[in-house]
């Protein structure tokens, strides 16, 4: 394996971990359930995308690389539908979104 690929793979893996961290920070810091959903659906999915791409650069064959890349859209679809279910439920239960300080 070429050194360039190895470095690119390592960078992608670290970037992926950073996005996961941002997602977790958002989950803990953001003011309401909707904002937290934003953090998880976007940051974590990009984090997983980076990890998957990073690992597929090191894959021993093309088929294995494609298999790894196939996981990403599946997880995207899963988290988008789950996020919709949670947001819709929260809305139906009457949870109003946090409006920001300047409006209060």
């Amino acid at each position: 394996m070429s050194a360039v690929l190895e470095v690119a793979s390592a960078l992608l893996l670290v970037a992926g971990a950073a996005f996961y961290l941002a997602g977790t920070v958002g989950l803990l810091r953001f003011p309401d359930v909707y904002a937290r959903l934003h953090a998880l659906t976007k940051a974590d999915n990009l984090g997983l995308g980076c990890v998957v791409l990073g690992l597929s650069l090191q894959a021993e064959s093309l088929a294995v690389a494609v298999k790894l890349l196939l996981i990403w859209p599946l997880v995207l679809a899963a988290s988008a539908t789950l996020s919709y279910s949670i947001a819709r439920r929260a809305d139906r239960l009457g949870i109003t979104p946090w409006q920001g300080k300047e409006d209060r």
Binding site: Y20, L28, V33, L40, D44, R89, L93
Partner: peptide, 28 residues
Amino acid sequence: RAARGPTAADRMLVALLFGTGGVGILLL
């Protein structure tokens, strides 16, 4: 976050994170 809530919807968020996080961990 699951422990703090405050709503049931907030606790469900952890399920979402465990999905993406769990897949990432398995692959690594």
